[in-house]
Design a protein around this nucleic acid. Sequence first.
RNA 1: GGGUAGGUACCGAAGUGGUCAAACGGGGCAGACUGUAAAUCUGCUGGCUUACGCCUACGAAGGUUCGAAUCCUUCCCUGCCCA
Length: 396
Amino acid sequence: MFEVLATDPASKARRGRLTTAHGVVETPVFMPVGTQGAVKTLHPDELRLLGTEIVLGNTYHLWLRPGEDVIRLLGGLHAFCAWDRPILTDSGGFQVWSLARIRKINEEGVKFQNHLDGTPMLLSPEKSMEIQAALGSDIAMLFDECPPYPCERDYAEQSTALTTRWAERCKSWHAERAGEFFPRPGERQPATTKPTGQNGITVKRQLLFGIVQGSTYADLREQSARDLSALDFDGYAIGGVSVGEPEAEMFRAIEHSEPFLPPHKPRYAMGLGTPPQMLEMIARGVDMFDCVHPTRSARHGLAFTPDGPIHIKNAEFEKDPAPLTGDCHPHLAPFSRAYLRHLYKAGEILALRLLSFHNLDFYLRLMRGAREAIEAGTFSDFRAAFCERYQTNRVP
RNA sequence: GGGUAGGUACCGAAGUGGUCAAACGGGGCAGACUGUAAAUCUGCUGGCUUACGCCUACGAAGGUUCGAAUCCUUCCCUGCCCA
């Protein structure tokens, strides 16, 4: 399922290949976020044009609307949103943390009122697994409890233990029942489009990833990583990051978890990060990322460039004839900064689409660059050069 | 020509004696955004000043008053109605 193809001599960076039911994912990889079954503003053709290998969907949001039954009836999430490449679904644990107003966590699961109409609901490990199986994602995330930052030691300890117990329940349910949903009875084998490479491996089941918690406590991170490793998941995420903690804590969360995860399984840093952060994470042994930053920031007028992000709405670009970057994607190359600024300020939807496309291109290209650098054994130079330019040469 | 309603900051629009450099929108300028309740949110927006503060300002000019965007006089301009 996951092969490590090359490693960087000067860091923990790995070049890998993850095989799922809907195709191969080359790592390190960035996964655009498509919470409600859509990467906001973009057509699947555009995602393919970008070379997107895998996208995210969200259990919580799709459960509430339109409901997993609807999606199952329409042929599963891939068919529903016309995306034939891999999909990873997040379990809903994060949403329970981030938006459910009134929530009560107990051993069984989380009781809360949903954000749409306040209906009382219960999300449990089994329910999350069931929804994800019904959606038919290639990778399901286990249902965890994402503690806030900062987090008291006592709470973190209990929360981490709970996540581990839930992990066992997720695994049991998944092992016993996911097959009823996935692969879907009668579903024809997906016409897998393998973005790069072919490895002859076929996967006919939904993969399941564990999520390491432990907040900012090194020993809890270690314990969590060890406990989850013992459960033998297909991959391991590091959770409880991107919840408002300082960047240093984010890196420490990785450093405290990674050594205790099996080296032959993919590692996924949930919800991260900025371009330099991702390279730092790769150097610490992370293989997979997802983040709303490139797409949300795009909708707010931020465009990524090798010299750092720029606010396209700023007056300095009013008459700037240059494209966003010197080596723009051909899809974006015809457009000047002045035009993009105009579109944004005029409230034209096209601005949001073009900037989303551009930012994802920037992220995906950064990952391709990292992969090539790891293969070439030059990742450390690549990382240093990128970060140096990104952070110091802010040029309009 | 007569009547009538008005002229407030970049625009629209409140305010009708002191707490007004003037509410609120828009526009403009800047910032934030990390497992997406986000095409969202925040700050600034007369001049000088780090600030205290000072200066200039509610069509124009005079006046009343301790004090005027607010009251009085005249003038200029605009909308509408009548001739």
